[in-house]
Design a protein around this nucleic acid. Structure first.
Lengths: 205, 205
DNA sequence: GTCTATAGGTGGATAGAC
DNA sequence: GTCTATCCACCTATAGAC
């Protein structure tokens, strides 16, 4: 079954590439880039390793594509947030909810996972990885800056620095929570990140 | 050269086991548990893989020993802090300095690294890993609680929860900073963690 | 585009000489 | 305790039939 020449892929069905990425992503987010193999993906998709190599010639290319897609989907989610509300606190709550949904699927953030393995990653993956963090920090910094200017948020120092702290705090909370298999550890930390930024600091816990 | 029977190891020279652990630790903190091999360690020590297996029969045992020693050394550092000052803020600064020294050696926290790979770790390593985080949180929670009671620190909610947030924030800051090879990213985030807990919140940054 | 088959390499681990 | 030699499982990747 070859795709018709020159035709856009039919929207109704998921392409083979997408299904490979789906499975590989799940593996990478739970076991890390060095913790899964073509054989693992092939087994779950009921196909052969050779078939996977047809779509992604090298594991480096597969890894790069994983980050690229993860980044793209994440950016779309951020745009959706921007289109849904103008309130900074609400934007941050929805941002945190993105990370929380990852945890609820018993996964680690793909890029947080790859960051741990950074020293062993091929160069194309490294570059793609930084782009993801850059985009996160840029979006966060803008939300924080706007929120502070509007009097909705309170924090000291440059918004860019605070954005980096927030990102790190969320990634780290996921990282440790996974060792306990307890999403509540993440949620508790995430809540504190939010309340530390909020103007009215009153909620009991 | 066999150690004399029943004699304590001579304090002056470093045992073979220690030197193996030193090299393996450096590998593990930079490349992850799944990112280094017996061959890597053997090459740096100018010995054979078989020799390493004599001291650490399996990689699982090597990994467990790595965490155990890391934990022990860390606990000693915490005791040293407790013996040096009673001021909570100073204790926290010294605690952060422990993490900072790891970053300055271009490493990730051993246990933060292993937490990422948690799903692929043998059971003995998993158990040992949680002990490290438990000890960190316990020490931090005590410092935070005491500091708040003494009016040296200011934060809301249970000290235990705040301790988890602090730990997560530091681990996450290291994680992301490594992708940029920039220790200042960690230091900036660490400073914010400290100022967020301090009573007088004035320093410009 | 998917398959079988296999190359070529590296992983952890062991046996047995010294 | 360290070595040589080796086993076997698994890895990424490719060739070529269908």
């Amino acid at each position: 079954m070859t795709a018709k020449k020159g035709a856009r892929p039919p929207a109704a069905q998921v392409s083979v590439k997408q299904r490979i990425l789906d499975v590989a992503e799940q593996c990478a987010q739970t076991r890390g880039f060095n913790g899964f193999s073509y054989a693992d993906v092939a087994e779950k998709l009921l196909c052969t390793k050779a078939s996977l190599h047809y779509h992604f010639p090298s594991k480096a290319e597969l890894g790069r594509a994983l980050i690229e897609r993860y980044h793209r989907v994440f950016e779309q989610a951020l745009e959706a947030i921007d289109g849904r509300t103008n309130e900074a606190g609400e934007k941050l709550r929805r941002y945190v909810a993105l990370y929380d949904s990852v945890m609820r699927n018993d996964r680690m953030c793909l890029c947080g996972m790859f960051a741990a393995e950074y020293a062993t990653l091929p160069a194309p993956m490294r570059d793609e990885l930084r782009l993801f963090f850059d985009a996160n920090e840029k979006w966060l910094a803008a939300v924080l800056e706007d929120g502070r200017r509007a009097g909705e948020l309170a924090f000291r120092g440059p918004a860019k620095q605070r954005a980096r702290s927030v990102l790190g705090a969320l990634e780290g909370a996921m990282l440790v929570a996974r060792a306990y298999g307890d999403g509540r550890r993440f949620q508790s930390a995430a809540k504190q990140v939010l309340t530390d930024l909020s103007v009215e600091r009153a909620q009991p816990s």
